[in-house]
Design a protein around this nucleic acid. Structure first.
Lengths: 194, 194, 194, 194
DNA sequence: AATGAATGAGCGTTCATTCAT
DNA sequence: CATGAATGAACGCTCATTCAT
């Protein structure tokens, strides 16, 4: 009863929670609105009261959860491209990924699907911007590869290391360390350190 | 007519080609058998003469195209885990990935789907074996992260660098170089060099 | 419009009616959901709103229409196995069969199909229980054959006598009389008459 | 080799055997030509060399196995309708059914399907003729019911008594005895005994 | 704020059948 | 005597979506 009352008005939120869970677990295509509705003990039609389409649910998830990333990018945009900035960007980005892990797992594992959802484009753009923040403007191919690898490793590393034993947080820090190394190496001695 | 005749007997192959193309372009779930059939100017039922299920098409692709990887793993299994071996493994693996790029793009972008296809398991196992080949048995977490990152970067790097200008082959070599660095660093000074 | 309105809410019932009709007329396998839907002027998908599968329609029919049989069996279970009870059981069973004639025609003529529907088992069990009610525990083979024949004749008799002219109700009574004779003969002089 | 050679030329027969087996086990609709072909280690197309259609297989089975019934009917046609004749007809019919048990099981359990196969009509006609042989021309409804029941019991009895323990041949004789009783009762005292 | 009822499009799959070889 | 390759039609089922209530 208390629960039922507490649930009043937060249905939208609950839809998002369940949807993200299922999308991350089973994939977008394999998760039907019927399934989401059943998990929430409401009808499919109820979902349409809160979201215009299935895609809209994803969009809302993305908007809510990827905001920290956008804020990070905005924060970095004004700062000089020093190694210190880059380091800080990586550090914060790693934390943002951790905090929205299910969303990124979903995006990671459903790239083909995400690609022609409307968020696909903006996700790609964000990635490009991130690379832009990390690499020197005239970096050689290998250094670009280093930066891209750093980013890729933050995105995929956690899932790729699922079979490695160890505390998740420690694993995250290990991956971050590697990413920092790569970006530091790419930064080069000629670039401004501070 | 000549074409029709020439096509006799190679339908199976043509199905595989078209399917791989579409799977890589649009994703597995979004590619229907109808679509594949239409591209080949045959009926859906014809596909079923050559493959028992839709999943079977993927399996056949995987068996055909991932064989070089298995051979590589088999080759490395007998060799001492020297830096030289590791280097060679990475080098060859990178080439294998290039040669079967569409397949790996497909697997990369449809992970959620691939996961509950029967090949999902064997793909994961292969990855684990590869990590086993690259890392020292008692490696620290950071070194494990290095090896995993090397592998992840080979897999995802090419797609992540699609927006970077440059010759694909050069990009591949750049990524490979980064991966080699990572594995070399992880190898450690105490481990056998040769 | 008046009709359309009147139809609101009774679609489930209408599906059952049409389905039973078609199943009895043409057989289960030869009756497609498309056909049922067309008879009702709805789409196939509408059927799935009311029933989870095609088999579910049969199950629902069985549950609704075979209930009188179950009640009869329950009623008889507590009573002494006198000739009077047996007579009453046959009499009532014959009426139950008449009231659900299309269902039993369907089960009769689609035995091979019904066998691996989930109701197959329970139908068979019901038959066994019925035989148990009619025969003496230690009856000889011939007496068992009499009881089985009585039952079989109630089930198949109506259909087998379709080409005999006469009022259906009179035919039913004639068959019932024969069944009663058989069970009476099987009851034996040593068994309790009352 | 001996086997292979022995099989030469009797493929038609082997198709019939396998088909009858599967039809009786699983039903006509649930048995596909593919399945039959696989059991024989030939292709579906091979079946079409021996039989024009799927239905043709059934027809051929019917023609081969129901011949004894036709001969029985022909034999009885010329004889006076004495009780002795009727008794003999039942006796022989029971044996014919036993010898072609799988076919009759098939026909019994697939009535809905058989009905619109071309043999449906002739099967029904045969049944009518059989009833004509057993009942007196002006028999009352109850006596007609007795004769129909006798026949029905021969057809269905064996399957209905599957769960009764006992030697199959003894069970058959028990059923036959009941059938004889019924027809004897129906024959009436006024009809010619010999 | 949500439901009940339905739709239209599409999916993967299976089938009996055909025919050139 | 039989196969390899294919077809056309259908089937059971699921999905995202709609809309009156």
């Amino acid at each position: 009863m208390g629960t039922a009352r507490a649930r009043r008005g937060d249905t939208r939120q609950r839809i998002q929670d369940v949807a993200l869970d299922l999308f991350a677990q089973q994939g977008y295509d394999k998760t039907s609105l019927r399934e989401i509705a059943e998990h929430l003990d409401v009808t499919k039609a109820a979902l349409y009261y809160h979201f215009k389409t299935k895609e809209d649910i994803v969009i809302s998830l993305f908007e809510d959860l990827a905001r920290p990333c956008d804020e990070l990018i905005a924060w970095a945009a004004d700062r000089p491209r020093t190694l210190e900035t880059k380091t800080e960007v990586l550090r914060r980005y790693s934390e943002a990924l951790r905090d929205a892990a299910p969303l990124f797992r979903f995006m990671q594992e459903n790239q083909a699907t995400v690609r022609d959802l409307s968020i696909g484009e903006s996700f790609k753009a964000r990635m490009l911007t991130m690379v832009g923040l990390l690499k020197e403007p005239d970096a050689e191919l290998t250094d670009q590869a280093r930066c891209v690898t750093a980013l890729v490793s933050l995105h995929s590393g956690m899932f790729a290391m699922q079979n490695v034993e160890g505390d998740p947080e420690e694993k995250r820090r290990a991956i971050l360390e590697v990413a920092l190394e790569l970006v530091t190496a790419a930064h080069g001695p000629g670039a401004p350190q501070k």
